[in-house]
């Protein structure tokens, strides 16, 4: 792949990518992760499929999870092989992601 214009694009940080999307953050975490289950998980599909990059590997080998900037797509619980590591719910009515374009 040669595209020079692509190279500066690749430098866009993930935070910049998420900047245009509106989130009305709830006080309640609508997704919770039992990280003890994650510690023994070898597949860790969530790290790759979560489009909002909410699952981040920790230096000590665990997984760090944030619920705030969630697209509410459901990919994480769909691929989570470890039984019950992810407790997934929709955020309360009116909260969470608000797509302006969609």
């Amino acid at each position: 792949m040669t595209g020079q214009p692509g190279e500066d694009y690749r430098e866009i940080s993930f935070d910049d990518r998420m900047e245009g999307t509106e989130f009305r953050v709830s006080e309640r975490a609508h997704i919770t992760v039992d990280t003890e289950v994650c510690d023994s998980c070898t597949v860790r599909s969530c790290l790759h499929v979560c489009p909002a990059k909410l699952f981040v590997p920790r230096a000590d080998g665990g997984i760090l999870f944030n619920f705030e900037q969630c697209f509410e797509c459901g990919a994480c619980y769909q691929v989570c092989d470890a039984e019950g590591a992810i407790t997934w719910t929709y955020p309360d009515g009116g909260l969470g992601v608000v797509f302006r374009k969609g």
């Binding site: 866009i12 910049d16 990518r17 998420m18 245009g20 797509c73 797509f99 374009k101």
Partner: peptide, 16 residues
């Protein structure tokens, strides 16, 4: 690349 060059990202979205 030549079609989208210079486009300013206004929203990033995902869905199943």
């Amino acid at each position: 690349a030549p079609l989208v060059r210079g486009g300013r990202q206004v929203e990033y979205a995902a869905h199943l």
